[in-house]
Amino acid sequence: MGRLSVIKTGPIATVQDFGRFGYRRYGIPQSGAMDRQMMIAANQFVGNPENFPVIEFALMGIELEALEETVISVVGASLKVNGQVKGKCEKVSVGDKVSVSSPMFVYGYLGMGGSIQAKEDFGSVSTYERAGFGGMDGRRLQTGDVLVSNGEGEISVQVDIPTRENAELVTIRIMKGPEWNLLKELPSFESFQVDGSSDRMGIRLTGARLACDYQEIASSAVIPGTIQLPADGQPIILMNDCQTTGGYPRIGKVFVEDLGRLAQMKPGKKVRMVRVEN
């Protein structure tokens, strides 16, 4: 068993696993880690199955104190123990001070050997704040919380960490959506910018207005990766905490494999969408 006490945390740090599946017909979002590949790497470093819960954090890092011997990992940020720089995975002892930096991109992940204990709702411990599902009583981490895992874990060094671009322009692949034909002309999708209002619900893009025979459609199913087009012509790419239905035209869908890369793009970065025939 491992135990870590939260000394300090940033504004956005939550427990996440792969998310909830099979409940969208009841209006329950998927949630789960925004960058699944990084979450998997954090679990692999400590010898866990890929879908075990992790701590996902954004904007700022986390400071913790070990209350019991615990194997921990950090992916997407740097790790210090008692002020000393460490690698991606480390075994900490009682009293050790753990410092995790702000994420290198948008989201970083902290893993613990064994399964982090959290509230389970609808088959997942992923935090969904709007309904109070999962995590630490449905909320973000806060000072004084104690993270408990139910296993020992083991240090692994043979882990592939996914590459995330820090370039000014990142290309993502999309396919046509059900309302693609409402577009007045085939768009170039060149160099939209990630807007600062983006969050776990959706990535808002700004740029050239997409011309569309605009009409609100009957409320229809949407999923993470769906590209909605509001009346202002500025696309919204829905992400993990998105609603289950929507009335904006669904002009496209981002490839699942590219969603983690998209999630890690900071505000101001440019996105080029390339359509792949489907």
Rank of each mutant, 00 (worst) to 15 (best):
F18N: 05
Y23R: 12
A58D: 00
F189Q: 02
N166H: 07
D232I: 09
G196R: 10
V54M: 10
S198C: 10
S101E: 06
E152M: 10
M39S: 12
C242Q: 04
N82V: 07
M112T: 04
G247M: 09
D241V: 01
R25I: 13
L205N: 09
G153M: 13
G134W: 01
R200K: 13
G10T: 02
Q228M: 10
K91C: 14
M136V: 10
M60G: 01
F52K: 03
R173Q: 15
L141A: 02
K269W: 02
A211H: 11
E257R: 15
N150H: 10
L229W: 05
V15L: 04
G10A: 04
L59E: 12
G61E: 00
R261I: 11
D195M: 08
R164Y: 10
N51H: 12
I237T: 06
Q44T: 02
T245P: 03
E257H: 13
Q158W: 09
Q117M: 14
L59P: 00
R20L: 13
D241R: 02
R204W: 13
T206W: 08
G177S: 06
T9Q: 01
F122R: 07
I217M: 12
M34T: 10
G10K: 06
F52T: 03
G252Y: 09
K88Q: 15
L238T: 13
V74G: 06
N181Q: 15
K80P: 00
